[in-house]
Structures are given as structure tokens and as C-alpha cells.
Design a binder for these strands. Structure first.
Lengths: 245, 245
DNA sequence: CGACGTGTTGATCTCTCTCAATTAGAGTGG
DNA sequence: CCACTCTAATTGAGAGAGATCAACACGTCG
């Protein structure tokens, strides 16, 4: 993929990034060092790294995860274009989670001190990063609610709705035959604290009831209302809303 | 409790807040509006509020939580002195979780635009907030790993260690007869995605094995090594480490 | 003294896990 | 074009960790 300028960056379309000034854009451009592409299933940031660079996901999907020493794995959240990668760890703390690519994924690489530079010289953008960081936490909060208190059916319904909305928000055209959905059942299981087998059985049950359909890497919600009843979400599941400041 | 000046604020002792300059302190002081005290078990921020102020927990414990419409509750994380309350929501997003006091709790109240002011005029402190926000997320990450992939015994061992360390880091004297531990078993259950009954049985089992002891609102770790083996934490459970910048 | 919150314990019940096999599709090499 | 392999999905059977139901104990408080 050709290296694109920050001017055409897909992140700019996100509502969080209120219209940037020319100076701000130029500033970001100066902090951007490189652009890298990772293969599907490859490691973007290894668990335990301390010197991880700061990335921004430009294209493709990924996920953050933690593992126990015996191999049990929990996916913390899924990363879609526009998400930051490694903010926590770029602040001097040891990283305690890994980041893998789910599909082929292109990232922008920023200077290690980019976060500080941003705060120092473009506080409005620094503020945006804080906002985005807080928003990512709220996604993890939602997942924790699911994993802690929802049944398997409810968890899966919730995940399907949330990912559907996030994916749909990124495409320009209305999602006629569904949205891209690159997760395997193992990813779903690891994201929801379920076993692979039970995930499969639950998915089949929901699909048999006509609630959704997954095929060829695409997800369709066939009965969004029923899924919504299962999920019992109030305001969650919609993409970030408000502009800043 | 007497209103204290930011100069004597307990937060200053936290390693995250590298020595502040006199100007920075003065700046914070100007943003501080008030000081409030909440009763144990009272609501600090109601679920769904949109105009919540920005607080900082000065004294006492609290917790963030989410509930499903049928009443199932998940505690997202526990708040100890030095924690922020409502950062996410003070950034223009609707709040989707509640905050309750666990003990009597005193908070500092800041102007609603304090976060922006901080970023704008004291970028170093703004950066600290971003760091703190990211760090809070990493605590939720750890809990999600527990709830998703650890057994009941392992979850409880993990929680005890983590809270012990956080509480110990806040007291000056070495914790001879344990650290303050104001949680009821219901709080533990809601924080770990377990039922009350099973939480009780598991706690009793661990206590019978001599791993810990809870009495009179205090927690002692009697066999930290055994608890650590159960918890299987690597770097987690210790308080925030590195200074900034 | 009765009511209430918290903790404790026993007896079921069930959701989800684990184990085990099988199927289907993609890629590879002969 | 056909074996061979590997990964992902699927399905059945049995086992188990944890949930639910039901009592009871204990201390505090009005």
C-alpha cells in the first residue's frame, strides 16, 4: 500500500477528530515516521515488550490480548482502523499485553516521543488522544460486563452488534451484504471468555434462529431487534459520538 | 474533613506525579472548586448521567460499575485515593457506568473544563492524566483476563493480591496487621463475575488453607507465595511505577 | 426485641467445559 | 487431477465448576 499523507488519513473522518487545522496536520505529518504492513496473524507488539513504538491502525483489523502462563488467552478488545496501538506502553510503563494482526494490517509508525510532543505543542490533539484512550477503556468496560455477567448467548449477541456497528461506521456505503468480519470462532471465544466448542454451538443456535449470518468473512444481522433484546445494551455499541471541546 | 490545599494532596506522593512545580500546583489549586464527602454506599455518579463533574478521590474507597436492566451488576474496578472519577465522561461522552462510594469518601471537585485547561496550559499535567487514564485501563484489562480465563480460586487470589498491594502502597507504615479492606463479599463477587455463594465458599476454602485472613475490615496475606502461584501474575498487581517524560 | 445486612453452609441444578471425532475447504506437491 | 496436510467449523457425550435455592447464624441498630 502506498504511503499516504496524513491529509488523506481515514482517521480524520472519525467524529473524534474535529476538523484539524493545517498546522495540526503538518505537525502530525512530521511525527509520522513510517508505514508498516503486518501479515494476518502476525505479532504487532509482543507481550512484555517495553520499547514498543506508537502505532495507529490505518487499515485492517487486530486485537489486544493477554495470556496466562499455561496458555489461556483473553482478547481484551478488537482494533479497527483508527485505533491507537500501544498508547499505554508508550508512557513508560511495561507493556503487559500483546497486539496481533487479525487481517493483513497497515499501521502508521510514530516517533516514540510523539505523544509527549503532541501534548506539548498541540494540546488540542493531545486532548483528543486522552479522549480516545478513555473511549477505548469504555469498550473494555463493556466487554467486562459481558464476560462477567452475561450468558453465552447474550455475550455473542452483544459482540455481533458492537462489531457490526463499528465495522459499518467505517464503510462509506450502506452494508448491503453485511460488513467485513474476519474473526474466527476461536477469536470470538477468546474475546468472550468462552470455550471454542461452546462458542460454536451458541453461534449455530443463534444463526438457526435467524438472528444473524456469517459467511465468507462477512457478518449480517438478520434480526437486529432480537439480538438487541439478548444483548440488553443501552447506549453501547454505537461508535464514538461527540466532538471535542 | 478540613479542606486541604493541593500542596498537601496525597496524590502528590504517587510516583506518577513527578515533582510538580510551584506554578503547576498553583494551577491545579485554581481548578479545584470544592471538596465533598460521600457516605459509604452512596452514589457518587449515577449510571447514565451526562453532566457529571470531574472528581479526584482524596480519601476512602469507591468503585465503578455497570448494571444490566435485570439488575445483574459488574464492578469494573475499585477506586482508591488518588484515582480519577469521571474522566471518560468529562470528555463529552455519555457516562455508561456508575460510581459508588464503598466507604465514606472525600473527593475534590474540579471545574468541568479542568481537563481541557490542564492540557492547554499545563501540558505536562495533561500528559499525566493521559498516563493515569491509560493505567486505569490496564487495571480493567487485568480484571478482564481474570473474569474471562481464571477459575474462581484464581480470580480471588488475584484480587486479594492486587488490592493488598494497592492499599499497602497508600499507607506509610508497613502493614503489620494487614491493610484496610472495606469490601463485602458481594463486592468481591460483583467484581469477579461470580455468585455471592460461590465467592463465600471459595474465600473460606482459601482462608482454611491459610492463604489469607480477612477480619474487621482488614486483609492479611498469610501465604503470599501460594496466592501468587494461584494468581499467575507476572508484572501486574504492583502499583504504577515509572515517572514520566 | 424484631428487622436487616452480612456471612455461612448444604443440596440441587445447569450452563459451559473438556474430550473425541468428523466434515469441509484451501493449499501443496507429485 | 488426485492424494496429503492443515486449519476452521461442527457435533455428540460426559463431566464439572459454579449458579441457584433454601436455611440459619450473628451482630448492629432503631
Amino acid at each position: 500500500m502506498k504511503v499516504i499523507s496524513c491529509n488523506g488519513c481515514p482517521l480524520r473522518r472519525l467524529p473524534l477528530f474535529t476538523p484539524q487545522s493545517a498546522e495540526e496536520l503538518q505537525f502530525i505529518e512530521a511525527l509520522k515516521q513510517d508505514q508498516l504492513t503486518f501479515r494476518a496473524d502476525s505479532v504487532i507488539i509482543g507481550e512484555g515488550r517495553t520499547d514498543a513504538p506508537l502505532y495507529t491502525l490505518l487499515q485492517g483489523w487486530g486485537y489486544r490480548f493477554k495470556t496466562l502462563s499455561d496458555g489461556r488467552r483473553q482478547i481484551l478488545n478488537f482494533l479497527l482502523p483508527g485505533d491507537f496501538i500501544g498508547v499505554q506502553q508508550n508512557m513508560g510503563d511495561a507493556i503487559t499485553h500483546g497486539v496481533n494482526a487479525l487481517t493483513d494490517a497497515t499501521v502508521c509508525v510514530f516517533r516514540r516521543d510523539a505523544l509527549w510532543e503532541l501534548h506539548r505543542y498541540a494540546p488540542r490533539l493531545g486532548f483528543s488522544v486522552t479522549w480516545l484512550s478513555a473511549h477505548e477503556e469504555s469498550i473494555v468496560d463493556d466487554t467486562l460486563l459481558s464476560v462477567g455477567r452475561r450468558s453465552a448467548e447474550e455475550r455473542i449477541a452483544t459482540l455481533l452488534i458492537v462489531l457490526y456497528k463499528r465495522a459499518a461506521a467505517l464503510s462509506d456505503d450502506p452494508p448491503a451484504e453485511g460488513v467485513p468480519f474476519p474473526l474466527t470462532q476461536q477469536h470470538i471465544a477468546d474475546g468472550l471468555g468462552l470455550s471454542l466448542v461452546h462458542t460454536n454451538k451458541t453461534l449455530r443456535k443463534l444463526e438457526a434462529r435467524g438472528l444473524h449470518h456469517i459467511a465468507n468473512g462477512r457478518l449480517q444481522l438478520r434480526d437486529a431487534k432480537a439480538l438487541g433484546r439478548l444483548a440488553d445494551l443501552y447506549g453501547d455499541g454505537r461508535p464514538a459520538q461527540r466532538p471535542l471541546i
